[in-house]
Design a binder for these strands. Sequence first.
DNA 1: AACTCGGGGTT
DNA 2: AACCCAGAGTT
Length: 403
Amino acid sequence: MKGGHDDSIPGDALSECSVTNLSKLFPADAVDLKWMQAPLISWYRACKRDLPWRWTKDPYHIWVSEVMLQQTQVAAVIPYYLKFSHRFPDIFRLAGADLQDVLMIWEGMGYYARARNLHKAAGMVVNRHRGRIPDDPEAFQSLPGVGDYIAAAVLSIAFDRPLPVVDGNVKRVLARLMKVGVPVNKTSSYKIFRNLAAAMLDHDDPGTFNQAVMELGALICRPKNPDCRACPLSGKCRSHQDKAAASYPVREIKPPVPERRQAVGVVFRGSRVLIVRRPENGLLGGLWEFPSGDIDNGESPEAACVRIMREQAGLDVTVTSLLTRIRHTYSHFRLKADVFICKEASQNGPMVAENAAGFDASGSTQTSEAINGRGVWVSPDELDRYPFHRAAAGVKSLILTAS
DNA sequence: AACTCGGGGTT
DNA sequence: AACCCAGAGTT
């Protein structure tokens, strides 16, 4: 860009920048983002979607919606939000519930740490704050699962606190509006977007303003095919003026994710099938599945299945047949799994419960230690009492269909 | 600052 | 298929 005056923000522009020194990094008019408040809020009032959580200012319900909306699109969240609100209508009901019941409602939505953290945080709010969600950013953000975004979103919407939200929508809108050249998916870029978001925030109605920016990103300033003709900000949008909206935001290219191969074992004892619960933390934590594990290098899928059934359930089995093959894409790896029907070689499984008597009707694990904390034999019609992750749910459906 | 953590809607 | 979503916790 020689000769011409270029307002765009180069990718190497800044290592540090605060709201106060934005003017040193940006041309003077770049820092003045207040002009967008009126047209944006006006557009929002006219065009906003009718979403369930927009009918309340109750901080608990706002909180629940914002947690669900992390990395999850609005359309996917709506049914979960409605079910969750019905089952846990206030923070006391959530705090008093069993985690397994919370995961039951969350089943299939992914990122299950959100549910674990929300449940834990609800208990902390009840115990420390008598059920009142703190309107102080530091106190609220000290709760598990409450980061910069959740704190700003909930406190601005429910308590009118002037805190700027920075999510994928906000970063995309700002990147195009200001031609911000730093990658939106790099940690080091976060401060730039947060400072720009702080500079544009409407302190008179921060909750509405924050939602308006995000709504613009979702409906108009979309990742693909932005509808610039309908955008209330296009007149002063730099990438629109330069016909470069498609070039923003800039994104760091990530290498392809690796593939992981697993074996899964389905074994019946009489009419009951063995399921196991994953450890509370980590991938798919607290959810149920059929015994499964990685296939070692050079190991056959069948041998891996036999080994996994011995390691996880203390069961000696032989592989009878291949039930199905699973392909599932996670955030950081692709899964290919062979699902085998197994047969017990001997009838004593010392590490596994003989039946489901150790579990109550809700599927909670009150006597889990007595059965190695992992496994339980259940009849197929009881499978719906346990939260399964998506890949395991496919196997569950096959079993239900067959029985 | 990179990595981990799901699942699905859009294109 | 690739992209990306109202991100947060861990290392």
